[in-house]
Nucleic acid binder design. Structure first.
Lengths: 139, 139
DNA sequence: ATACTTGCAAATGATTTGCCAGTGT
DNA sequence: ACACTGGCAAATCATTTGCAAGTAT
């Protein structure tokens, strides 16, 4: 796989990004045709250089996989996103496996719900940000 | 809210269905314009008569809310769906709330992963079926 | 030459919006 | 009359596919 221009731009953009970015966003910012962005993301994903996540509704979001696998928590009201290391969810994952027979992961589809602020209670202290595509209106 | 023809057909179809059904499916089966199906589903949802779930990729799926709230587990490989009563997940939900500050639910977005068969191990004994829209090819 | 890449147009699929004509009260 | 309803065309959004011209090796 050659490191073509569009390909390099996509990687650089993801590297510079502060969080997951959608293909349409990349295409617009980089001034590269969306088709090319999609094709490159797919190819890069096959090579394990990028991956994508789904945070609730809307476009898939792309990221560079870090050294440690990250899983996502997403607030469907305020669009806050929290990333946690896979290890932190192992115990929960294991309980789910034992009780229901599914090996779940929140790397491809986030864990979705309401953050404490949006529900009204305590706090947390993990790295969080907001989904770029904006918060969600009442469903 | 009047119980118009299209509205009644949608409700009857959901009642007869064995699992969540998409709007496009309803439109096709009932021979009712998709627009009408969407509008009715949305209206019915606002009145709490129906609700919808997202099982991985693809269209949203609609169901009649039962007496007890159901949450979904979905296998991204074989499309197997398992429904569990909300209570059964309360302990897990609570752990997630304490550790990460999110009140998650799997009623709107399913808990996604691989079922034991697709991963290779033990078993479970809950009501399960397959997503109508077919299984997923290797990502 | 030959394989890899890209842009552009067009298609797909789910979902939404505008509009207008028909129906129920 | 007047609000509610359904169908149809068209628009939107994310994503995919076909194709033809351009580029690297």
């Amino acid at each position: 796989m050659r490191l073509s221009t569009a390909r390099r731009l996509v990687l650089e953009a993801l590297f510079a990004a502060d969080g997951p970015v959608s293909a349409p966003q990349l295409a617009q910012v980089l001034q590269v045709d969306a088709t090319s962005v999609y094709r490159n993301l797919e190819l890069l994903e096959r090579h394990g250089l990028v991956r994508h996540v789904h945070l609730g509704h809307g476009a898939g979001l792309w990221v560079l996989p870090g050294r440690q696998e990250l899983e996502y928590l997403y607030c469907e009201r305020c669009a806050k996103v929290t990333q946690v290391a896979a290890d932190d969810l192992d115990s929960i994952r294991e309980q789910i496996r034992q009780r229901f027979g599914y090996r779940v992961r929140f790397t491809h589809f986030a864990l979705i719900g309401l953050c404490d602020q949006c529900a009204g209670s305590s706090a947390s202290r993990v790295s969080s940000y907001r989904k770029l595509t904006g918060a969600v209106r009442g469903r």
